[in-house]
């Protein structure tokens, strides 16, 4: 399972980088989204994938054997990362829209004005 997951993440990264290298700004932004999700999945994979219960201590018991629950921390981390990613996605799309209104172009090659002397 972990191997399949790792290959899948690798594929996502490849797609993300491929999209980042395109000329259209929209595709670059899509590439950023793909990379962001691939990164979230890395955290998920790092926590270990196993079939086990949720991280609740049963009623009456003081502790629980860590082997029978899955680690809740990576899930919390991913949740945070997803929320941040969502905010940034909304912002970057608005920025792109504004840029398109201003210039009428999708072409990254038109974005060379600020680099010139």
């Amino acid at each position: 399972m972990e191997l399949i997951f790792a290959i899948f993440i690798g594929l996502l990264y490849a797609c993300g980088v491929f999209l980042l290298l395109r000329r259209s700004i929209v595709k670059v932004i899509l590439g950023v989204f793909v990379l962001s999700n691939a990164t979230n999945l890395i955290i998920f994979l790092a926590g270990g994938i196993k079939r086990s219960g949720s991280a609740f201590i049963p009623e009456g018991a003081e502790t629980i054997d860590p082997a029978v629950i899955s680690d809740p921390l990576p899930q919390a981390l991913i949740l945070t990362a997803i929320v941040i990613g969502l905010g940034i996605a909304a912002y970057i799309l608005a920025l792109k829209y504004r840029y398109f209104e201003e210039t009428g172009t999708h072409d990254l090659d038109q974005l060379s004005k600020t680099d010139r002397k």
Binding site: L20, V28, L95, R98, Y99, L111, K113, T114
Partner: peptide, 14 residues
């Protein structure tokens, strides 16, 4: 939202 600003912002952001 000046043009140069938007351009700089896209590079900075990505």
């Amino acid at each position: 939202g000046e043009r140069a600003q938007l351009e700089g912002a896209i590079k900075y952001l990505i």
